[in-house]
Write a protein that binds this DNA or RNA. Structure first.
Lengths: 237, 237
DNA sequence: ATAATAGTGTCTTTCAGACATTATCTA
DNA sequence: TAGATAATGTCTGAAAGACACTATTAT
């Protein structure tokens, strides 16, 4: 039998395979707090519990698992987050009462302002402070996934400016530093923070200014390449 | 309908789900070269091509996807690698001719000595120098996966001593440095390399010595915790 | 003018890079 | 004892930590 004959007679459902889903941890920064987007489950299992936005691959519509993640996030927030990255996959016999189940998880960041309208209009989607979320009884193993997403973001705050994606397109350096500090749960030396960003040339000064406090701060946008940039030296963990 | 009623009537095959598999990139260092374990495919699709060791979850035997990865590696090498870590997942409509397919990939390291016997005894499993493997026409998107595994290991060589897991349990510092250099494709300053390992207290001196060259080098084993340790400062990329 | 926030100057500290030097082993 | 490899000493340099200082703006 050659390959094309094989493919004609191949029947996928011959082998029992796990339930497969895609979930996302969408994080943002709002009111000086890290928040995570949760969705109230309207169906079994874990009906009534809050959990991560996600679901099954649509074999017709989705071309990749990342598209599945993005599609589900867009359904809930109205927009595609500017930062989305694979976090981890979990698969086990026990994590879902329906049977052997696998989830590929993504971690995404977004500015709160950019999707608050859509979210405010529905009752089954909401931002929760990370701390609150972690104390709730969440669906499946979603608590673990959120913890892992937080830890990974913490690491990134030490060697990149990825946290910038929790801010609007234009932001000030004090705002950016504040987000890093919130993620780290720890203050950072202002000089160190600014020096390394300046040296690595990661931002574009827009020329505009923002009056958040007394003196106005310069507004910046992040360079496209800066998403990939990592500093050779971490800030103090 | 409550949850237990729902679970009774739940039928997994109602929703069409992707083909799901688990694959591993097992790397080792041998003859001053990084090598990857490949398996010749005895069945369609890509029959006759070499590809990564892996396969489907055994819903009865495997409790987690990591167990699936380890089971498959053990079938091929005879042993469980001392280091195995999730690498990435790929899922798309196109990567497998049979249909929408997802693979969770693991990256693992092992000492060549610890599994050469088993591998030498069969013809469909073999170590290939990384360079050679990347020039071969491999099954599926396995070339990309191997490249990603290599890149991730390169990064780890800059901020950890994870490469130690390509060596036998007892190894010398010159051996460890050599492995790092092979992975990086670049020489490292001996003093810098040793200084940071000493300072971070990552190894245990066994007291034994090994005569590889002229002067005998001290033999070390890696501390269990060192698997998790990351230096705050990278070596030069 | 004052107070608050934005932004800079500069000294210290840490640790990697570079490379010379010493130590130990085999032949 | 010579030559090779292992291991250490030490100077330089780059970048983070600490913190004082100046600049700008709303009130």
């Amino acid at each position: 039998m050659n390959e094309s004959e094989y493919l004609k007679t191949y029947n996928k459902s011959e082998f029992e395979s796990p339930i497969f889903s895609v979930d996302s941890v969408l994080l943002t920064c709002h009111e000086d707090t890290l928040k995570v987007l949760l969705v109230e489950r309207l169906n079994h299992p874990h009906k009534g519990y809050w959990g991560l936005p996600g679901g099954f691959v649509d074999l017709k519509k989705d071309k990749t698992i990342e598209e599945t993640a993005i599609r589900k996030l867009k359904e809930k927030t109205g927009i595609t987050p500017p930062y989305i990255k694979q976090l981890m996959s979990i698969g086990s016999a026990k994590r879902d009462k329906r049977g052997w189940s696998v989830t590929v998880c993504y971690s995404a960041l977004i500015a709160h302002e950019n999707c608050s309208v859509q979210i405010d209009s529905v009752s089954d989607v909401n931002w929760f402070p990370l701390e609150t979320a972690l104390q709730m009884k969440l669906a499946f193993d979603h608590k673990n996934i959120i913890e892992e997403a937080h830890e990974r973001l913490r690491q990134k705050a030490l060697y990149s400016i990825i946290p910038a994606y929790t801010l609007p397109e234009k932001f000030t350096l004090p705002e950016l530093q504040k987000v890093h500090e919130i993620i780290l749960g720890k203050e950072i030396q202002k000089k160190s923070f600014r020096r390394r960003i300046e040296l690595a040339d990661l931002l574009i000064e827009t020329g505009e200014k923002q009056a958040s406090g007394k003196r106005q701060a310069a507004l910046y946008t992040i360079k496209e390449e800066s998403k990939e940039y990592t500093f050779l030296r971490n800030l103090e963990g």
